[in-house]
Nucleic acid binder design. Structure first.
Lengths: 223, 223
DNA sequence: AAATAATTTAATGTATACATTAAGGGGATT
DNA sequence: AATCCCCTTAATGTATACATTAAATTATTT
């Protein structure tokens, strides 16, 4: 659904349902038949069905015959899957960016996200920090330019969003993550592909182990 | 669309269109409005629309407003994107499998694919070889067990299928690829994660460079 | 011949009708 | 209390009607 595409009921339904899922207004496990969802959104079943098919493709819901759409929970296993994939993909993508010796202009969105991250940390504003964290990672993907990679990782971020938001305050202030991002950015500026890859990968491993430990410690079997 | 799901017009439309695209019966760039596609498949527009949404999510078509569905070509750039992703994901997945010290039973599907590859090579049957090659890679993913990874890579294989089939006979007999698969399997049997990763990654790099060179040499800008 | 305007055609997006069938509920039986 | 049977309800899958609008075609003007 491109920004330039004209607004349709399908795109409206898609955006609203996606945002309700991401914000836990439609919590994991929530299930409703199509007529009910259509009524909630004030439209007929047809655009709702189409939106649900797209959300299913994004891994946010499953369509259960005769029971409607169910918001998929994110279990510890799911987060492990997602982090395994990100740990393979993101460091290689970042290393490829570093290998190109990106200009300061090209790195600007990453720099802005880094600066926002630092400010949010200083202000102890975890929500702003999380947003800046997302932008750091995703702007690197934009810079990298592989569209399939970008699409897939966006979908994984959507799926992981709730688990990350819910556990954010359980993880302590993200001093270490911020420092690791700083190191990654320093290596990017230096055009050092191997160092970028190494530090990024270590960051992903540490951060994902931390979150998975929390999910297991607090018995958050699913979110 | 699970195997166990009952057959619907949607699933029928999806399977038929997907197979027509993969086999070039609907070639890249082919474009038709929904009513025409519905007529071809002998059903109404509704199930066709749903099937097309799923095919769009799979990256095989794009839905063009007022112009119907267009079969996406695979350009050299696309193949490069796909191979970059596979070169990051597959070696790590295979290394993770090796690290578990898989039993001979667990490795059986990979062994069968390997044996089929050898036989196909001896018989100079490139189509059978390509099929066995697919099964080698995909059965490793099944063994690995990461569902998101598996789903994504299946979609990439679907997208890459035509380019690989069309260029198969231009690449010469895949003696080298077969040897590399043998080495990968030997390291898997030995439970050597690092060697599995290294050889797999080298294999991916060489094989993708070869195919991309052919796409550029023969000016096959798109397929 | 080319450009522009007007008209016609047809695709899409959406709503809804309808047949099928699965789920849910209630009553009877064990 | 548990299970089974029957009936009712309602969800889904699909077809099609319909309004809107974009593309295509035709007519007119330059």
């Amino acid at each position: 659904m491109t920004e330039s595409a004209r607004q349709t009921r399908v795109s409206d339904a898609y955006a609203r349902l996606r945002e309700d899922i991401r914000s836990n207004r439609l919590p994991p496990g929530f299930q409703a038949p199509e007529p009910e969802i259509a009524m909630r959104l004030g439209m007929s079943r047809t655009p709702v069905r189409e939106a649900l098919i797209r959300l299913e493709a994004d891994g946010l819901v499953e369509l259960v015959p005769r029971r409607g759409a169910r918001v998929l929970p994110i279990r510890a296993d799911d987060m492990r899957e997602i982090y395994d994939i990100l740990t393979s993909l993101e460091p290689d993508a970042a290393a490829a960016v570093a290998a190109r010796n990106p200009t300061p202009e090209q790195l600007a969105p990453v720099e802005v996200a880094m600066a926002d991250m630092e400010h949010a940390l200083a202000a102890e504003d975890l929500d702003r920090w999380a947003d800046a964290d997302d932008r750091f990672h995703l702007s690197l993907l934009d810079l990298h330019g592989n569209r399939r990679l970008r699409g897939f990782i966006h979908a994984l971020y959507d799926q992981a969003h709730r688990a990350r938001i819910v556990t954010l305050r359980m993880r302590g202030t993200p001093v270490r993550s911020t420092e690791e991002h700083r190191q990654i950015l320093a290596h990017l500026r230096a055009g050092d592909a191997e160092a970028t890859r190494r530090v990024f990968r270590a960051h992903r491993r540490r951060a994902s182990a931390e979150l998975l430990n929390i999910l297991e410690k607090y018995k958050l079997g699913q979110l």
